[in-house]
Simulated assay, not measured.
Amino acid sequence: MLFIDPENAPGFKRTLFNAIVAPRPIGWISTMSPEGQVNLAPFSHFNLVSTAPPVVMFSCNAPADRHEKDTITNVRATGEFVTNLVTWELRDLMNISSLDAPYGTDEFELAGLEKAQSQKVRPPRVARSPASMECKLLRIVEIEPQGPGDTVSNVVFGRVVGIHLDPAFVEPNGRFDVARTLLTRLGGNQYASVGPLVELSRPSPRRD
């Protein structure tokens, strides 16, 4: 068995860690500055935290050219953001929106994406996304560098205050059609859609 010490393995986080904890859903986060400038960026460190209350999280490391990403700056200032589901068909436009553009750049316009108005928050939604969640900031947890090569990481927790669903992706039984929509992040620059699905019922307690 190969053993790796993360503190003494250069490049461990990106080359191995991300690939081990995969696949990961992508949170396509739209935010707005207090002045009304819109930002859109994808985050593969994104997931559900709680269902009651409904809470999601996303996190990112500080970029090399500034102290934090525009998304974090906007969320700190306004306390609002929207998560938009990325589908296989939207993969190229999502990738365009990941460009390290100057602060104030509208990635919606950069990628040619139509905006849709939200109901309870100011940031717009991605109109073509089959599922968007409007969120209010709960807290931001800062993970400080622990050693050489580490950067500051900010973990954002938001309470979902509104959900937009495209009816075309809601099955008759009320389930959301994950297999037909979800794009996931693997290791490096690898992405994938959802493969075959299998249902496993939780085992019942044994009664003698």
Results as ranks from 00 to 15, higher is better:
Phe3Glu: 10
Ile4Phe: 09
Pro10Ile: 04
Ile26Lys: 00
Met32Phe: 03
Ser33Lys: 07
Gly36Asp: 07
Gln37His: 13
Val38Asp: 11
Val38Thr: 14
Asn39Ser: 11
Ser44Phe: 06
Ser44Glu: 07
Ser44Asp: 09
Ser44Thr: 05
Asn47Gln: 07
Ser50Arg: 04
Pro54His: 13
Pro54Ala: 15
Ser59Met: 10
His67Trp: 14
Glu68Thr: 11
Asp70Tyr: 12
Thr71Gln: 04
Thr71Ala: 04
Arg76Ala: 01
Glu80Val: 07
Phe81Gln: 01
Asn84Ala: 02
Val86Lys: 03
Val86Gly: 07
Glu89Ser: 14
Met94Ser: 08
Ser98Pro: 06
Ala101Trp: 03
Thr105Ser: 07
Asp106Tyr: 05
Glu107Asn: 03
Glu107Trp: 03
Leu113Glu: 00
Gln117Arg: 13
Gln119Phe: 00
Lys120Leu: 12
Pro123Gly: 13
Ala131Val: 14
Ala131Leu: 15
Ser132His: 01
Met133Ser: 06
Glu134Asn: 03
Leu137Ser: 11
Val141Asn: 06
Val141Pro: 01
Ile143Arg: 07
Asp150Thr: 11
Val161Met: 08
Gly162Asp: 12
Leu165Arg: 13
Glu171Asp: 15
Phe176Gln: 13
Val178Leu: 14
Arg185Glu: 10
Gly187Gln: 05
Gly187Phe: 09
Gln190Arg: 14
Ala192Lys: 00
Ser193Asn: 11
Val194Gln: 04
Gly195Met: 05
Leu197Cys: 04
Leu200Asp: 00
Pro203Glu: 04
Pro203Tyr: 05
Pro205Tyr: 04
Arg206Cys: 02
Asp208Thr: 12
Asp208Arg: 12
Asp208Val: 10
